[in-house]
Write a protein that binds this DNA or RNA. Structure first.
Length: 791
DNA sequence: TTCAATACAATTTTT
DNA sequence: TTGTATTGAA
């Protein structure tokens, strides 16, 4: 198949510019992903490159996966040798291979934001730095930003004496992290850059290995990433970067769209190709987007154009308050869906802050509209998942103190701060990390040498019990498959029992943990040790931001940030008010420096350009924020849009608004006082939520797809369960409880062997069985997990 | 050590 | 208003 077929001339040019540096400036909806995949296909099919000579960097794992599948459809040849991934994933791989050059162990774990903050807090406590004056979050931000700029603890120059404390934290944080055999997200980039800079032979190896490099979303690279690209491309200079300054919305994470300019300076012979034809939006929408973004000063002007028709005017609406706003969105969605016979999946509601989603959810539930909330609480950030992962990480890497501290008293074992402190100093006195100290302790316990330790009776007992438990888990990693290890860990630690607190939330947490098995099952082909390492790596770098299932008949609710890269037929942007969009923080900052406001404008630009044919820009007259209700001003960005492109501009009088808000057709419960109305509505939402619970929990198939993914999915009905939204691995059937156990029953467990049932009780959907195993002690097991067989 | 009361702060989040 | 982190009593 001809990979050039169906491409316009600019796209074609970009695909065929094989040699030398190329910069593609790609407007929204201009087919840049298409260009990237077709270019790779061209390199392989027509140019005769081997897949392993190409490195393609994307910004999310999801984008990488998408590119692979598109590519496979395009060329059908083997893509497994291609290097496609995020900077972080590619760097992690390189670092593990080259660990020895940096004095690292290749089994390092990767600390996420949460781990980083915990460690920073600890460091601040150690250094006796006031966490009120210096917020750990801020300190972390400062350190992370420095690292993104390739600044290390040694080269960090405190901008004022206030920052001297931060420098000290930075130094100790890095040192401790090293002792924990861990790297944080930022280190992955920083250390790889260091590797290339300090080790010429290594650098040459990778330069030779990857003569062709492609980078997507180049406007969102930070300095570290920029330098990495520079090192890699220095030899062959076949570097192809794609970006759009106008869509740079992550500067607060260290991204610097000026890298686009920098690229043109550093590679002065770069071909610059503009993709200006928009295939996505109506003329009206494109015009509005251009009108908004043209007010930014720091940008290269572009001439976006489209062959698409003028399309419908942009619908403006001022609601009385956020409830009416939500109500309006819900009724409009129903109207649009009915009139145009479109799937709900063609609709999206976007907002600046996550806090805005709640009222919307309520309205959608009331109207029975199915929705998907992107990026609520991410699966891997859930407490229960992080706890379990911390156990596995500790099993993998005993030096990981952050993980140890996380789990040492979860479930509560009576090991508090004081005992932990004793353990730390005892281990330190032996020259061990606390994790290795525990392993040592477990050995001593076996040899009856606990009296040689300084711990007092209670602490000695509790600590040694935990040490023995940990020793057992650590031993188990060599024998069992990953899923078995996970199961063993859950059983031995009693973690699931700990979660089962009788609340529905507890059940949900248990289900989440169970969901982990569907992931670990995918690693069972590897040898145990490799499986554990791979799994930890993948889970650290994997975020299922939005496994958006395009087919599900549900609308999508998401922040403007997470909307980047997506498109919808109809888009609602709510909260178009000063203080929300642009956000008040940005307004404060822009008093000193206009760039914060420019980024807010880009955010709106991104939002607008997601829409294909219909756009709604909605604001309120009055809104309750942090418990206080205040009148609001329309967003300044609305003024940028010519009135000729819009409709519904009339602002009704305050009186009329109030009447609308309480009008009979909107409120079936009219006649009630405001408070009663609220109560009534709450009851309705509550009932709808309960129905949802029933739909998910009760009866036949226990598809828990809505828990598995990042976001929540609302309004699941019995008849239409959403398909699984975690495409990573196929879901395995959970063992169903088919037996019930009586005290005295003799049972067999595949790890613990033969035992006798002591007691059994039905809890929720499961059965909790207490069994005395011969020589292995008394265990409490979940019947659905344990696969107990009656003898 | 644990749990409940209280204080406090509050964007955005590709890794 | 809401969620989380810290503090103080049992």
């Amino acid at each position: 198949m001809d990979v050039l077929e169906g491409l316009n001339s600019a796209q074609r040019e970009a695909v065929q510019a094989v040699k030398g540096p190329v910069l593609v400036l790609a407007g929204p909806g201009s087919g840049k992903t298409r260009v990237l995949t077709h270019r790779i296909a061209h390199l392989i099919d027509d140019y005769g490159l081997r897949p392993y000579q190409i490195m393609a960097v994307t910004f999310t794992n999801k984008a990488a996966r998408e590119m692979v599948s598109r590519l496979e459809a395009l060329i059908g040849s083997d893509t497994s040798r291609l290097t496609i991934g995020t900077f972080h994933a590619i760097c992690a791989r390189i670092l593990r291979r080259e660990a020895e050059h940096l004095g690292l162990s290749s089994s390092f774990v990767i600390y996420d934001t949460d781990d980083q903050r915990r460690l920073i807090k600890r460091v601040m406590k150690d250094l006796d730095i006031d966490t009120k004056q210096y917020r750990p979050v801020r300190v972390h931000g400062a350190i992370s930003r420095a690292k993104n700029d390739l600044i290390t603890a040694e080269t960090y120059q405190p901008p004022s004496y206030l920052y001297e404390a931060i420098r000290r934290v930075f130094e100790r944080y890095d040192k401790l992290k090293f002792e924990n055999n861990a790297l944080d997200f930022d280190d992955l980039l920083l250390k790889t850059e260091e590797l290339f800079r300090m080790h010429e032979d290594v650098r040459q190896h990778y330069q030779g290995r990857y003569p062709y490099i492609l980078v997507d979303e180049f406007q969102d690279t930070n300095k570290a990433q920029y330098e990495l690209v520079r090192w890699l491309a220095a030899e062959h200079r076949n570097v192809f970067v794609v970006g759009d300054e106008d869509q740079s919305i992550y500067s607060w994470r260290g991204a610097d769209f000026r890298n686009v300019r920098r690229f043109q300076e550093d590679f002065s012979d770069a071909q610059v190709i503009l993709l200006e034809q928009n295939y996505r939006s109506s003329q009206t929408i494109l015009d509005a987007a251009q009108a908004v973004i043209s007010h930014n000063r720091q940008r290269t002007a572009k001439t976006l154009w489209t062959d698409n028709s003028q399309g419908a005017p942009i619908q403006m609406f001022e609601a009385y308050d956020e409830r009416e706003e939500a109500e309006y969105v819900a009724t409009e969605i129903m109207r649009v869906a009915q009139e145009s016979d479109r799937s709900l999946s063609e609709c999206a509601v976007m907002f600046r802050t996550n806090a805005q989603s709640r009222v919307l959810e309520d309205a959608l539930v009331r109207h029975g509209i199915q929705y998907r909330l992107v990026g609520a609480i991410r699966f891997y950030q859930r407490r229960e998942i992080k706890d379990v992962l911390a156990y596995l990480r500790l099993i993998h890497n005993p030096d990981d103190e952050i993980s140890l501290l996380r789990v040492i008293n979860v479930p509560t074992r009576g090991i508090g701060a004081k005992t932990v402190g004793q353990l730390q100093s005892w281990a330190a006195s032996l020259g061990l990390t606390p994790g290795h100290g525990l392993l040592h302790l477990s050995q001593m316990a076996k040899e009856n040498r606990l009296s040689e330790t300084p711990f007092k009776t209670r602490a000695r007992r509790l600590l040694s019990e935990f040490a023995v438990l940990y020793g057992k888990l650590a031993d188990a990693k060599h024998e069992h498959s990953l899923s078995e290890l996970l199961k063993f860990t859950l059983e031995e630690t009693g973690y699931l029992t700990h979660l089962r607190d009788g609340t529905e939330e507890g059940e949900e947490r248990i289900n989440n943990v169970r969901e982990l098995f569907s992931v670990t099952d995918g690693y069972n082909n590897y040898t145990p040790a490799v499986a554990l390492a791979r799994f930890l790596e993948d889970s650290a770098l994997y975020s299922e931001t939005d496994e958006i299932d395009q087919d599900a008949d549900a609308i999508t609710m998401l922040t403007l940030h997470s909307a980047k890269g997506l498109e919808f037929d109809t888009v609602f942007i709510v909260g178009m008010e000063e203080g929300i969009c642009p956000h008040s923080r940005a307004l404060e900052e822009s008093a000193r420096d206009g760039s914060a406001l420019e980024e807010e404008r880009r955010l709106v630009y991104v939002g607008i350009t997601r829409a294909k044919s219909q756009l709604y820009l909605i604001r309120t007259f009055r809104r309750t924020l942090y418990g206080a209700s205040e009148t609001r001003e329309p967003s300044q960005f609305l003024r940028d849009i010519p009135t000729g492109l819009t409709t519904g501009n009339k602002v009704r009088s305050a009186l009329a608004r109030r009447r609308t808000a309480a009008s009979p057709e909107r409120s079936p419960t009219s006649g009630l006082s405001g408070r009663d109305l609220t109560r009534q509505r709450r009851a309705i939402v509550q009932r709808a939520r309960e129905r949802r619970e029933v739909a998910r929990g009760g009866g036949g198939s226990r598809d828990s797809s809505e828990h598995r993914s990042t976001g929540r999915v609302g309004n699941l009905s019995e008849t239409k369960p959403l398909p699984s939204r975690r495409p990573v691995l196929p879901q395995k059937e959970r063992p169903v409880v088919t037996q019930s156990f009586e005290p005295g029953d003799s049972v067999t467990h595949h790890i613990f062997g033969v035992g006798t049932v002591v007691s059994s009780k039905i809890t929720g959907e499961d059965e909790e069985v207490t069994v005395a195993f011969e020589g292995r002690g008394v265990k409490r097991l979940m019947a659905s997990f344990a696969n107990l067989v009656k003898n």
